[in-house]
């Protein structure tokens, strides 16, 4: 078993543009490998999972979207606050006329878009329900992966009681929020943060890790996404960065390879190398900051041709090899 034995709810967050949905998908595939059932859920009504797994838009219903190596299955769900509210009302109250009246008055709108925190209780509540659901004496899912809001909003999203308990101090919403809080603050949950080796995403990752820790929410791994292959040997980097690579050596190489060899081509390649070395140096500094966070770090390669379901298998393998499952 990997680093997250006993974790049932994997929450994946990250700054916008870091690829958190892709990483969540790869993690779900990795967790499902070897015959397990995993649910991946999104909460932002973006249909990111349908895009990722290349399936038709998801409804408020769990659908099998992929099979993992060794017979495992990944199911996906787009959690919708309105549907969750209706389900919630139906579950707790047998509402006939009153339910319709509530809807007409705009109560569902109120609860799902306006009332502070209620929306988040409904969204995390559904993930909570799926995490605990049983069929017979087994859990319905071996693990649940939640593609959560970006780093800037994730703590408020997960820390539902703080926002709700000051409002709904008693009653079923309050009780629901309390059970969710118990799960989210327990070792059965891990919040993984996705980053790129760039200044702002790393800064936001550090902020999110600090905020999660302050809220006593268990922080999982930091996933460094879109890592470029290190084509240039480390010892050539300093010279490359200053644009001082051996011009004649490169020219001779081009000739040996039977390529157009001119000073112009060499200059272009040397400029590209300088740019690459500059980025590598920046990335190394950012990587040191990531390491300082003291969390397990996984690296995922940049997929040059874009993400498709095949690429997900590759990323899932990379996570498994590094001990994520």
């Amino acid at each position: 078993m990997g680093d997250w034995e006993g974790v049932r709810l994997h929450v994946v967050t990250g700054k916008g543009g870091t690829g958190k949905t892709t990483v969540a998908g790869a993690l779900a595939m990795a967790l499902a490998a070897g015959g397990r059932r995993v649910l991946i859920a999104e909460v932002e009504e973006r249909q990111g999972l349908a895009q990722l797994f290349d399936v038709p838009p998801l409804a408020y219903e769990e659908h099998r979207v992929a099979s993992a190596p060794g017979g495992g299955e990944v199911f996906a769900l787009a959690i919708d606050a309105r549907e969750a509210m209706h389900e919630y009302l139906a579950m707790f109250y047998r509402l006939g006329r009153a339910g319709r009246a509530l809807d007409k008055l705009g109560f569902v709108d109120f609860a799902t878009t306006i009332a502070p925190g209620l929306r988040d209780v409904l969204l995390t509540g559904k993930a909570y329900e799926a995490t605990r659901r049983r069929t017979g004496d087994h859990y319905a899912y071996d693990a649940v992966v939640l593609d959560a809001p970006p780093t800037g909003r994730v703590v408020r999203f997960l820390d539902v009681t703080t926002s709700v308990s000051s409002l709904a101090r008693v009653g079923p919403i309050n009780r629901q929020a309390n059970s969710i809080t118990d799960l989210i603050h327990s070792p059965r949950t891990a919040v993984h943060v996705v980053t790129l080796l760039e200044d702002m995403p790393v800064q936001e990752t550090a902020d999110a890790v600090a905020d999660l820790q302050a809220a006593h929410i268990p922080v999982g791994a930091v996933v460094v996404n879109q890592v470029r292959p290190p084509h240039l040997a480390a010892r050539s980097l300093p010279a490359a960065r200053r644009g001082r690579l051996d011009h004649d050596d490169v020219l001779a190489g081009l000739r040996a390879a039977g390529l157009p060899a001119s000073d112009g081509v060499v200059d272009l390649l040397v400029r590209e190398a300088a740019d690459h070395a500059e980025r590598t140096a920046l990335e190394e500094a950012q990587r040191a900051l990531v390491d300082d966070l003291g969390r397990p770090v996984y690296e995922l390669p940049r997929i040059a041709d874009g993400i498709d379901p095949t690429a997900l298998y590759e990323l899932a393998d990379a996570l498994a090899e590094q001990g994520a499952v």
Partner: peptide
């Protein structure tokens, strides 16, 4: 070309630069 140079065991620097160049073009 990078593959040719790599299998010939010479011009490692040029091979690396060509791979970088190819990555940039792909992106």
């Amino acid at each position: 070309a990078a593959e040719r140079l790599e299998s010939s065991g010479s011009h490692a620097l040029t091979a690396a630069l060509l791979r970088l160049h190819a990555d940039r073009l792909k992106l």
